[in-house]
Amino acid sequence: MSATILAAGLAAAPAAAAPAPNEPDAAKLAAGGEKDPQTDKNRKYLVGPGEDVPAVLGVTNLGDAPVDGLVVQVRILNDLDYTKKYENCWYAVDSNQETAWCEFDQELAPGASLAVTGVGISTRTDAQAENISSIIHRWVSKEYADARGGVQALADQWAGQGTKAVRGTDTALTLTAPDGQLGGLGGPIGFVGVELVTPPTGEPTPTPTATPSATPTATPTVAPTAAPSASSGVPGGEGGGLPVTGAGTATVAGVGGALLLLGGAGYLIARRRTRFVA
C-alpha cells in the first residue's frame, strides 16, 4: 500500500527539468537588425524582382548569464520565398506563409551579439510591391526549444494542415558577429523591412503614323475643290487659259442692255408728245 501511495505521489509531482510549454524563455534575448546610420533604426532593404535579400538578422543577450545554443524562427509572406534551404533549418509552408526554424550551437555571452547574414530569402521574379513587406524573426534559447520537442517539432506546428516541415540540404547556416551595431533592439521578435524596387516604365513613345496622317487629308480637301470652277481644268487657276467668266458677268450685261432699250423708248415717247402739243 505504501508503494502505491509513493507511486501516486511521484506521478503528481511535476518534473523539475521539464518547464511548462507556456513558460517564457529564461534567456533574455533581443532581436535586432542592421542599423541604418541615417535613421538610427533598422535598415530597409531595397531589392528588385528575383533578387536575394541580404538581410541581417541579429540577436543580443540582455541577460546576466551566457546562453548556450540559440534558435531563430524566420517567417516570410507572399512574394518572398526561400530559395536556399540550410541543413540546420526546418522549413514549413502554410498557405502564403513560409517559416524556417534554425538551430545554432554557439554560446552567446552577456551583452554580446550574433547575426545571420542572408537566410536564403529572395523576391519572386513576378513579385508585386504590395506583396512585399518584412521579414519576421524570433530568437529563443536552444534550451527553450528542446523543452518543446526541438526545432523539428516547432516547425511542424507551423506547417499547413496535412503537411510536415522539411529539413534543408544546403551547407549549415552560421552565426557570426555583426559588422556593425544592431538597431531596433527590443523583445525577442524583430522586423526587417523589405521594399521592392522596379525600373521606371516611362511614357509610351508616340507612333510615327500620327503626324503624316493628319496633314495630307486636310490640304487636298480644301484647295482643289474650288479650283476647277475658276479655270478650265488648270490646277490652281494658274498657267493661262480663257478669261474668267461666270453668272455675275452675264447679269451685268443684261441689266445694261435693258437700261439702253428703256432710254431709247423714253426718248421716242417724249418726242412724239412734243409734236402732238404743237
Rank of each mutant, 00 (worst) to 15 (best):
G237P: 00
T207A: 15
L196W: 00
D25H: 03
A165L: 07
R271A: 03
V119R: 01
G50D: 10
N78T: 07
E98R: 14
E130H: 05
A7K: 11
D105F: 04
T198L: 15
T198H: 02
P188Q: 07
G233E: 07
K44Y: 04
V244A: 08
P21L: 13
V116A: 09
S232A: 12
V234Y: 11
Y267V: 07
M1I: 14
Y82D: 10
A278C: 06
I136S: 08
D25A: 03
A65F: 10
G263L: 15
A230F: 06
D36H: 09
A218I: 10
L62Y: 11
T207P: 03
P199D: 15
T169A: 15
P110Q: 05
N131I: 02
V244D: 14
G240M: 10
T83Y: 12
H137D: 11
G239S: 13
A278I: 08
G50C: 10
Q38V: 14
D25G: 04
K84Y: 05
W101T: 04
S113N: 03
D179H: 10
A20W: 10
P206E: 11
P216H: 14
P110E: 04
K35H: 06
A112V: 05
T245W: 12
V222N: 09
Y91Q: 00
D105P: 09
G193E: 13
T117R: 12
F276E: 10
W139A: 00
A159G: 03
A165N: 05
G69Y: 00
K85M: 09
H137V: 08
V151N: 07
P220Q: 11
S122A: 14
S231Y: 07
V116P: 01
G237I: 02
A226Y: 07
P24H: 05
Q157P: 06
A165V: 05
R271Y: 02
V166N: 12
I132C: 10
A250Y: 08
A172R: 06
G202M: 13
L46Q: 13
Q97V: 14
D146N: 15
D52G: 12
A100R: 00
N96K: 05
S113T: 04
L108I: 01
T201R: 11
V197R: 13
A227F: 06
Y82V: 09
V192E: 05
P212A: 07
W90L: 03
T171C: 02
I135T: 05
V67N: 05
S95R: 03
G186T: 00
V59C: 01
T201C: 01
A227G: 11
P54N: 14
A153N: 07
A17M: 13
V53Q: 05
I5W: 11
K164Q: 08
V56Y: 00
D36L: 08
Q106R: 09
G149F: 04
A214V: 13
E107L: 05
T169E: 15
P200N: 15
A223K: 10
P110V: 02
G69W: 01
S232V: 04
F104A: 07
S229M: 15
P37H: 07
T219F: 09
L62G: 06
V194A: 08
G118D: 09
K28N: 14
A92D: 00
C89K: 01
G32F: 01
T201H: 13
